[in-house]
Structures are given as structure tokens and as C-alpha cells.
Simulated assay, not measured.
Amino acid sequence: MTASSGPTPLQDPPPVDLGPAMAAVVQPLSATSLHAVHGAYAAGLITPVVIGDRRRFTNLLRGSGIEPPDWVFHDVDDDAAAADRAAAMAEAGDVGLVIKGNVKTHVLMRAVLRNRCSSEESGRLSHVFAIYMPEASYHKTLYVTDGAINVAPSPDLMEVIANNAIDLLQALGIQRPKVAVLSAAETVNRSMPSSVEAAVVCERISARADTLGPVALDVALSRDAASIKGIESPVAGAADLVVCPNIESANGIVKMAARQPGTTIAGLVVGGSYPIVLPSRGDSKQSQLASCALGRKYLAWSQYVARCS
């Protein structure tokens, strides 16, 4: 029997009062995405504004066992046009977040970038995976960045990516996250550029987080591995956040974790003026629902901070 996993965004107590948020949902044309969005709606997290092919959506709804919901609908049959509509609505403040349905990531993100007011005002976008796994695998939620958007970030961009993720963790109540910046070893080696870059990034974000880097993944997640290697750090074996040197390493960690029974993965784009729920089209209903919940909680904190500033 699989051990129960740790709290997911659906089980954690909300940091602030969470009423339903207006959410633009782009082409929820698979059974998984439809059920996930309906689940988030039923849980009171979102009020969906569906943007997509009405005929296909209606046909999908008929066979879903879901009572036809009273949602606002924008009938747009083309994926790029639907993504454009959603991004424009979010940029205008008509919706608080955008949820990716059965549309390719690059189509949605191109629309988001086209509709942004300015990169200076909005900041650099990056992606964070949240991995909720059985306690026997890891004792807390593990966040991984960036496994979906930024391919081979420079040290300057890695710093931005790390700070975006720290913003998210602080919004979720982890005020001083434990951050591991990955390489293949724990010493700076000029012939291994990722080790040099990891040390630079650790130094730059150290005012906001406990840091360890360069560091290999085993040390970040296992106190035993750290002890064997003689590494003493509050981050060793207890990382909240793993910052990866490239998209391949981050994506690989998440895909491997997803193979563990009882694991739920959520994905969110942060760093802009609104969060973007970005599950994989192959994710389970539970993972897609968790992504919606993560996005709603982050939006709540963003709104709270804006009111207090």
C-alpha cells in the first residue's frame, strides 16, 4: 500500500480568504482538463471563463457526467486566437489568472508575451513545479524551477528564476526557504560551468533564503548523502526549492518524481502580473486540479500584498 502523500494545495489551509477568482480557461477540451476545471469551480476556487471551441466543448460535456455549468463562454475555435483572448483579458484585469487547457504551451505563452504591457513592468516569466509525494519518498513539498519555459538560463536569469520561486514559496507561508542550486558536485570547478553559476546564484539570493550550491540532487534531498559527503548545511536533506541549471535537468527531475505512486505534480508560471496555471496535457485530473489550487492561492497572496503596499 502506498504511503499517503503530504498536503497538497487543496488540503493546506489558505493563507488568506479565498473566494472564487475569475479565471480564463483556454480550450478545456479533454476529459481530464474539463474535470479539473469543474473540480476547481466546485471547490469554490475559480469562476471559469471558458475560451474555446463551443461545439467540441458541448460534445465533451455531454459524455462527462457533469451537469452543464453556467459559465461565461467565448466561442473561439482556433487555439492561437483563444490564447490571445485569454491573455488580453488577463492583462486588462478582467480575469485574475489564466488556466491552460488542451492547448500547447508555446501557443499560450506566445500569446501571453504578445499581450504584455512591457517587460520592464511585468518582470521575467518562469515556471515552478510543486511535487507532492508520499512522505516515504520526501518529507515535504518539493518545488523545482525552471522545467518548462527558460531553456538554458544565464546566472542573471537564474537569479530572477530563483527569486520568482522564492516569491511563490513566501506566498505559501515559507518565509525563508531552503534553496539548493544544482550542479553535479559540491565544489566549484571551472571546467563545470554549472558549478560556477550555482555559487554565484547562491550568493545573490542569500539575503532571502538559506542556500546551498553548487550541490548535487542527492545531497539536497538526503541527509544521509550529505553526511557521507561531509556536508553540513540546513539545506542538505531538507531543500524546499531546487533551482536547476537548465530545462532538461528540471524537467527530468519532475518526470522521474511523477512515476512514483501517490505523487501529485502542480505547475505554475510566475513572475508576471498574473499567474498562469500550466499543467501538462498528460497530467492526471488530480495534478491539474492541484495546479488550479496552487494558482488560486498565489493569486490571493498577490492581491493581499498589493492591497498592503
Rank of each mutant, 00 (worst) to 15 (best):
E248Y: 03
A171D: 13
G213W: 00
V270L: 03
L60S: 02
S119V: 10
V25R: 13
P177Y: 02
L278Y: 08
L142S: 12
N115M: 13
S195P: 14
S302N: 10
G272V: 03
V188P: 07
M1C: 03
S280V: 12
D17I: 02
D218F: 02
Y143N: 11
S154A: 07
G252C: 05
A24Q: 06
D78E: 09
N102H: 08
G173P: 00
V50P: 01
P177H: 02
R176K: 14
V50G: 04
Y298V: 03
A90P: 02
A258R: 14
P20A: 14
R114L: 13
D167M: 10
T141V: 11
L108E: 05
A111K: 02
S227I: 11
A86Q: 06
S280A: 15
S227T: 14
A111D: 04
L125Q: 15
A31G: 04
V201N: 15
L125E: 15
D70C: 08
V305G: 09
A216F: 04
A225P: 10
G63S: 13
P279W: 10
A220M: 07
A171Q: 07
Q288E: 09
L113R: 11
R54Y: 05
G252M: 06
S291E: 08
P214F: 06
Q11W: 00
L18K: 04
I265Y: 13
Q11E: 05
L168W: 00
A216I: 04
S137D: 08
T2Q: 13
E203L: 06
P234Q: 02
P20T: 12
L61M: 12
S33W: 06
G267D: 12
R204L: 13
C244Y: 05
V201S: 15
V26P: 15
V242L: 14
D17G: 04
A86K: 09
G19W: 03
Q11T: 04
A24G: 14
A82I: 01
K297I: 06
R62F: 07
R204P: 11
L299W: 01
S194E: 06
T58R: 11
L172G: 05
A162Q: 05
V305K: 15
I51Y: 00
A136Q: 07
I46Y: 00
R62Y: 08
R124S: 05
D146S: 11
V243I: 05
V103W: 02
L157D: 08
R110G: 14
V49C: 03
V95E: 00
R176T: 15
F57P: 00
G19K: 09
G101K: 00
Q286T: 05
D156E: 09
G123E: 11
Y41H: 15
H35F: 09
S284Q: 09
V200I: 11
V98S: 01
A42F: 09
A184E: 13
K178P: 06
E248M: 03
A290Q: 08
P234N: 02
T47G: 00
Q27Y: 03
V270D: 14
E203N: 10
H127G: 09
S206F: 12
V242W: 03
A300C: 10
T264V: 15
L299A: 04
A136T: 08
V200S: 10
A184S: 15
R307M: 10
I247T: 09
V219D: 04
S249C: 06
V107Y: 04
L278E: 07
R85S: 06
A171T: 07
A226W: 08
S191W: 05
D146K: 08
L169G: 11
P28L: 11
G19R: 07
T8E: 12
V201Q: 15
